[in-house]
Design a protein around this nucleic acid. Structure first.
Lengths: 214, 214
DNA sequence: TACGTATGTAAGTGTCACTTACATATGTTG
DNA sequence: CAACATATGTAAGTGACACTTACATACGTA
């Protein structure tokens, strides 16, 4: 299974000369590492700078403030996620529920494997709620789901019905992801196989729509 | 419609003499207010102390540290939520889907009306993930849902099937709540009536189980 | 009334986000 | 190649915060 950079071990290159040479990108690596280690709220830019071997003022040559760093990180993660989503549906036939399930698994795996980043993307939205770049990036990702749903239902991707079904799937997968990383599900003694859950959900949301029962 | 203290305007009483007299509880009020105003991450204990008219060291006579304050607040909110949930299902007949829908609406309304508190309860879990008090409180709240689901399905509340169906509903409502307060849904141009969404979901999750189609 | 305890304050410590003034490297143009 | 503008780094601050320590005041109780 190929790996995206989200799953590869991230190393932070410290500087060699007076000028770092690649500070912007290495800072993002450092922050990403810290976000995973200490949670999306308990890291500091100062520490990231230390990791990259520069002074605590250096980051401000590349970013205006902390929120801007986080936004850059979120953009990066979403871009990578879109690539991975396109990759995981590829092996499954167009219009199959398997495609939907693969997307769901991909989403949940991201949350479980990178809870810090997941919290950053979805939990800290106060800062970048109205950001246009992020909205567009979100559209691209969600668009993949809408398209797959439309193919299952054999309707056009711009049919509102596709949007609605896709959203229903999204809410469940999103909610499940949160409850998993918060440990809420386990706390309540809920632990049935995720594969069954995913399959049953997609069947209930899309299956009966296929039969035109509603 | 009666109101829980969650929905009433919170006032913070400042101190009068040397001793405040009610500092612990007024600090919680102040923090709650700040959490709603500035978000669950951008408030300070110092500011809450200022609001209550005491020095920035005073709070530490009542709480060990910041996480402990937040935990106390979360406990309070969950307790009130449990009371409100029991209240909203009351008018609907036992075993009806209307009860389920009322619970879902109650959950979503909480998120929408108190996004700061919602984020605190569900987003900041790193701090209190393994806290036993919170787990128990969560059980009491989720138990209300499980019971209502069991009544719809005409099975015992301890039947694993009830737990499973209740969890499916939870994921959906939880996910929808998050996407709403994050503005993600609106960003993607998704805006159909919530009542229909809730009704359709509960029907799909519980309705077909009634008919034993799966 | 005296004393222990609960609850407040003032003044710290160390960290952080972010700024300002200055230093060093890099690329560009005469 | 020299001169200069610009990009990128540092050191030393500022003000806010979480939390601590030593001390002050009030309260309850024997």
């Amino acid at each position: 299974m190929p790996e995206t950079s989200l799953d590869t071990k991230i190393e932070v290159a410290a500087k060699t000369g007076y000028h770092h040479g690649d500070l912007r990108s290495q800072l993002l690596n450092a922050v990403r590492q810290l976000v995973e280690e200490k949670g999306s709220e308990n890291f500091s830019i100062a520490e990231a700078a230390r990791k990259a071997g520069v002074s605590s003022a250096a980051p401000y040559r590349h970013f205006n403030d902390k929120p801007e760093i986080l936004k850059a990180l979120v953009m990066q993660a979403m871009e990578e996620k879109a690539i991975e989503m396109r990759r995981v549906i590829e092996p499954h036939p167009v219009g199959s529920l398997a495609r939907i399930n693969a997307l769901g698994r991909c989403y949940i795996d991201f949350a479980r494997n990178h809870p810090g980043m997941f919290r950053l993307v979805f939990g800290n939205t106060e800062t970048h709620e109205n950001d246009d770049d992020l909205r567009q990036q979100g559209e691209r990702v969600f668009g993949i789901v809408v398209e797959a749903v439309a193919q299952v239902l054999k309707i056009q991707p711009d049919d509102p019905e596709a949007l609605k079904r896709a959203y229903m799937l999204w809410t469940m997968v999103h909610g499940h992801s949160w409850l998993q990383i918060d440990g809420k599900a386990k706390q309540q003694g809920i632990e049935f196989p995720e594969e069954h859950l995913l399959a049953e959900i997609s069947l209930r949301i899309l299956g009966s729509a296929l039969n035109e029962r509603l």
